[in-house]
Design a protein around this nucleic acid. Structure first.
Lengths: 235, 235
DNA sequence: CAATTCTTTACGGAATGCTAACGATGCTTC
DNA sequence: GAAGCATCGTTAGCATTCCGTAAAGAATTG
């Protein structure tokens, strides 16, 4: 499996990227902090690729890339994909000069990012073959979500979910406590391209509650945040 | 038993080598294709030694050797014996530089090849009974998949699968219970570079079901996960 | 060039997801 | 505490999507 480091201070963008890559079976580590990023890159872990926001508080992305390339950390040769603001051509040029391999300007569609990441990994021949990997599971009291097997155990019983239901649950449950708007949920379900009625998310939530909540009327996992959206409980 | 991978495009030479080594009690897998060779070397099987033609259509032997050595496949440390044309000294030099262990120039006598193979295996202490390597097989009730021999037994009967059919089965069966999208399946089949219609995966699955399922209408091994892809049953 | 293998395409039926509408609930203001 | 408004829950029907299958068209192989 490929390991990706995502460095991005905006939590929303970070989550989108994390989810998109995780869904492809990649192992994603995130940090919002340039200092922390350098620490991890210089640490013992090998990252196969780095997604790097240019604008960061503290150390900027350019400097991080520069440091990475001139050091001899395990990940010194890893491809770097820069995230830049729409019209920030200067950063693009400088970025490529200090050793970045690619850039994507915000806003971007998750699919595009994924396909670029894959392209770079392929060039490095690091794409996962049929590596018998373990199932990545999210475990909570009374609830277990198997992300790779797409199976859910609620109260010890296996529950049959539809594709969208599972995706909503996986989306929310990977970031317990974080509130997502209906739009974010629906955009995740449709991979960035949803132009319908966001309240369709409500229906998925209802169906999920009926299937996984001990008492659907008083949800324990899938909580409504009035005026904002939904969140998975912080357990 | 020692397992040898022979990469050679000339069918005549390939047969000679295969027979010579088989007669010595070794287990021989052959391929005429550089791409395929890399796929198998990066796959889950362990090879104890590689016999590698320098001149190949597509990827050449030097590149294969280089990739093998810098990757972390199970066979990354295996001895490599290069087959070169009589006067191709450049290849010999370059070959040894990129990590080949020996070379034999064509035409060669089978006995010579065998004795060199033996010498390298001995040096690796792989001829000793201490390390009896086995066939890597996936065994399920009523189904057996021999990854190394690329053979399949279903209900005790040997089943003839095409190359892609076998690859799909091997891919899914190495991670029972894990769901793979059509894209992931096709990308595996084409080593990361597939841009066609992902539903081709459906057809392979159908063919496989007809060949290995007791009741193809109600699959027991190859299960559909609606809205997501396919998985091998968790048995 | 014949045969085999693989991919593409199309269609029907079944499962799924979206919309829209209405009722229920929570929040705010008086 | 009640009225009014906004937001959420719930339902059912309809449109869409998805899968199995077959058949034909590429591509590959001998």
């Amino acid at each position: 499996m490929s390991r990706i480091l995502v460095v991005e201070d905006d939590a929303a963008v970070r989550d989108v990227v994390e989810h998109a890559l995780t869904r492809e079976g990649m192992e994603v580590a995130t940090t919002k902090d340039g200092e922390e990023a350098l620490k991890r890159l210089n640490g013992p872990d090998l990252f196969d690729l780095v997604v790097l926001d240019v604008m960061l508080p503290g150390i900027d992305g350019i400097s991080i890339c520069q440091e990475l390339r001139k050091g001899d950390s395990p990940s010194a040769e890893a491809p770097v994909i820069m995230l830049t603001a729409r019209d920030d051509e200067t950063s693009v040029v400088v970025g490529l000069e200090v050793g970045a391999d690619d850039y994507i300007s915000k806003p971007f569609r998750p699919r595009e990012l994924v396909s670029r990441v894959r392209a770079h990994l392929r060039r490095q021949r690091l794409l996962s073959k049929a590596v018998p990997s373990e199932h990545k599971k999210l475990t909570f009291p009374g609830l277990e979500v198997d992300l790779f097997g797409r199976r859910v155990l609620a109260g010890g019983e296996e529950v049959e979910l539809t594709a969208k239901e599972f995706d909503v649950l996986a989306f929310l449950a990977t970031s317990p406590g974080r509130v997502y708007s209906r739009e974010q949920i629906m955009r995740y379900l449709w991979d960035g391209e949803f132009y319908g009625e966001a309240r369709a998310a409500d229906v998925h939530i209802q169906h999920l509650r009926k299937k996984i909540e001990p008492d659907p009327q008083h949800p324990h996992y899938l909580l409504t945040v009035r005026g904002a959206g939904y969140k998975f409980a912080n357990i």
